[in-house]
């Protein structure tokens, strides 16, 4: 499994559309799920919970301790830890602050 930083730079150097890890997005950002970099079992479970390719996800808020983060997907609010969200690749729809 690739580290999220590795594949971000990888994509950028090739000049293809910018991908980010879901965990990198700031609060308020909307993004579209691209792919899940997780073992099938977990990936499928997340997909059943809404994190499937082409699903629109909005970063709602972070927990008071800064992690986990609450995401809105399909009208549901689901919290994921950074350690999970960093394996979900997304295409940000609006530029979050860099």
């Amino acid at each position: 499994m690739m580290n999220q930083r590795q594949w971000i730079s990888h994509q950028n150097s090739r000049g293809i559309h910018t991908l980010s890890a879901l965990s990198e997005l700031s609060v308020g950002t909307t993004a579209v799920v691209e792919s899940l970099d997780l073992p099938d079992e977990i990936g499928h479970h997340l997909m059943h919970m809404g994190f499937a390719p082409e699903a629109r996800v909005v970063v709602i808020r972070r927990a008071p301790a800064g992690d986990p983060t609450v995401y809105s997907i399909d009208g549901f609010e689901i919290a994921l830890r950074r350690e999970t969200a960093c394996h979900i690749r997304v295409r940000p729809q609006q530029e979050g602050p860099r």
Partner: peptide, 9 residues
């Protein structure tokens, strides 16, 4: 092993 924490609000 690697069960993630997924919490539905």
């Amino acid at each position: 092993a690697s069960a993630p924490f997924i919490l539905e609000l």
